[in-house]
Design a binder for these strands. Structure first.
Lengths: 127, 127
DNA sequence: TCTATACTTGCATTATGACGCAAACGAACA
DNA sequence: TGTTCGTTTGCGTCATAATGCAAGTATAGA
């Protein structure tokens, strides 16, 4: 899959072997979804809530219009970070925790594999 | 530390206990640094290179002006993702792999701790 | 069928970020 | 001390993204 930046050109293929694994996991869409402070707030609220929440409930954590909250949730959903389920008039959102955790760990593992840092087996709990 | 969004207000303190750990790790600055495709390219190039690289070397992986590359590297450095060292006329950049990996894993762990997903010990390979 | 509620979408405005060019900066070297 | 090379910074331009308001859609219930 060829990435294209917003200026049209670009057709990067990565240098070589090991970095390919990182390339696959480092999706700008994922990070883009997390780079807005309000989206982080919404995600934290949702994560901390421990249950599915409606748009209105989540709105209380951000001083922004409900419509904007709805749009932010859409961005997070499109990035696969949260998912939604409609029940009656309301839409309930939940964090795709398992998937997000897996994504984060696979990026970490891929980075570990391609950079010349400690191998996974003897990784130290360095702080 | 109180977060402030670009509209001035905002002073979120998270709901409660466990999500605080996620809040500490979910820094928009970190994600913001990774949400640009050119910065991802630079990071991949640097990671795949396996050694310190100069700005000029890294420039070859992106069809953008050298000055822009320099700025992108600055963003990555400010986010703690890469670090720089000046040697003579040149500036060598390297990935802070250990730190980045630790950050990713701590986010994953915090998320695991605060969401009601499977505990780490018996997490199933669902899906 | 009408109304209320919950949410989404269209649109215009504003803010933020990426970009290239040119100039500035700092180190090496003649 | 002047020149060259590698990099950074200033600045204006353009693209993208965030926002609020208003209007639209869908479901529940009177």
């Amino acid at each position: 899959m060829t990435q294209t930046n917003k200026y049209g050109r670009r057709g990067r293929q990565l240098r070589s072997g090991s970095s390919g694994a990182v390339a696959k996991t480092l999706d700008p869409k994922f990070f883009k979804a997390l780079c807005d402070p309000n989206r982080i707030s919404l995600l934290l609220r949702l994560a901390g809530c421990g249950r599915a929440c409606t748009v209105s409930e989540l709105n209380s954590c951000c001083p922004i219009d409900l419509s904007v909250v709805s749009r932010h949730l859409g961005v997070l959903r499109d990035a696969g970070i949260i998912e939604s389920e409609k029940r009656g008039k309301q839409v309930y959102y939940t964090v795709c925790a398992v998937e997000v955790i897996a994504t984060l760990r696979s990026i970490a593992n891929a980075l570990e594999g391609c950079c010349c840092c400690e191998p996974k087996s003897r990784q130290e709990k360095k702080k």
